[in-house]
């Protein structure tokens, strides 16, 4: 399906926001302004944006430890995200979640999740809610190749099939679960092949190509919204950096790293839309400039923001206690 110029701009804005945000995270991490760990989504932008492009705030996603891109693709504000991952007052979760626990219920973002395989069962429940309410909304569980081997994920796939819930399992196969290659850790030709064994349709697409991901997601959405049960989508992605910011990646060859960078979803999107004369280079550049300015301002504001008040240490454990 042909996207309109506005839709293409929206897609590029979202993808480039992830790129600029994550590059800034890299820098901030090096500067010591981000406590703890940071797992960035660089190289996978087309996957998250392609999957979330047709979702609304009422559709829900569960994410992973590498969740910043999913948050942005789902509409979370980058200002609140910077505050959150720097552990500041006013963060999207009040500074109590951090990089691996960003959630925004109003945007249908049910949480990044620091437990590998944590999200799929929760997303089954979110999809069950939609089914029982008779809506046409869906739930998406993002997982990586690492989580594809967790029992929780496999339990969730079976449960989703037998309950016939409107859910899409998205496996972003970036080739590595932490330091171990999926080539080694996944005992099947592909992650999407497993879906058939659970009784659901699947596709495996080039996760570096926004248009391929988006087209596959449209088919997935049509399937689940027709009440036919869950669907699996594997997106083959490049992970530009290591598992975490600062990972020297000794387990990957220099050739492989160069190749990963060459498969750049941002550049591929630019090439595609300019070659087809759908958008001008100047339009794309303008989007980039606006985003760069916004990211710069948001990061600077977060650096200057106060820490959460100490009184919040013991709040929001319970609704009532």
């Amino acid at each position: 399906m042909q996207l309109s110029r506005d839709e293409l701009k929206r897609a590029y804005t979202s993808m480039y926001a992830i790129r600029a945000f994550e590059e800034r995270v890299e820098k901030e991490f090096a500067d010591g302004t981000i406590p703890g760990f940071a797992h960035v989504y660089l190289g996978q932008e087309a996957s998250g944006v392609g999957v979330c492009f047709d979702l609304t705030d009422e559709d829900q996603i569960g994410s992973t430890h590498r969740g910043h891109g999913h948050c942005i693709a789902k509409g979370c504000e980058i200002e609140g995200m910077f505050l959150e991952i720097m552990g500041r007052d006013g963060g999207i979760c009040g500074g109590k979640g951090g990089s691996m626990h960003i959630a925004d219920m109003d945007k249908g973002m049910l949480g990044a999740n620091a437990i590998v395989g944590g999200s799929p069962p929760i997303a089954v429940g979110a999809a069950l809610t939609q089914k029982l309410r008779g809506t046409d909304r869906v739930a998406v569980a993002f997982s990586g190749d690492g989580a594809s081997n967790q029992g929780t994920t496999l339990e969730a796939m079976n449960m989703a099939v037998i309950l016939k819930v409107p859910m899409i399992f998205v496996f972003e196969n970036n080739g590595y679960g932490e330091f171990t290659a999926s080539e080694y850790s996944v005992g099947a030709p592909s992650l999407s092949d497993r879906a058939a064994a659970f009784g659901m349709p699947a596709q495996c697409v080039d996760g570096g190509d926004f248009f391929a991901v988006h087209a596959a997601m449209r088919e997935a959405l049509a399937h689940v919204r027709a009440g036919k049960g869950p669907y699996t989508l594997e997106t083959r992605c490049s992970r530009f950096l290591g598992h975490f910011v600062g990972d020297p990646q000794k387990y990957r060859s220099p050739e492989e790293l160069a190749q990963a960078r060459a498969n750049d979803p941002i550049q591929r999107f630019r090439d595609k839309v300019t070659t087809a004369a759908l958008l001008d280079i100047s339009e794309l550049d303008e989007i980039e400039q606006q985003i760069r300015a916004r990211v710069e301002a948001a990061a600077a504001a977060a650096r200057a923001a106060p820490m959460p008040a100490l009184e919040t240490l013991e709040t929001d454990v319970y609704v009532t206690y």
Partner: peptide, 10 residues
């Protein structure tokens, strides 16, 4: 997990 997901969504 599904019960938790259903609970947090209403």
């Amino acid at each position: 997990g599904a019960a938790a997901g259903a609970a947090v969504t209403g």
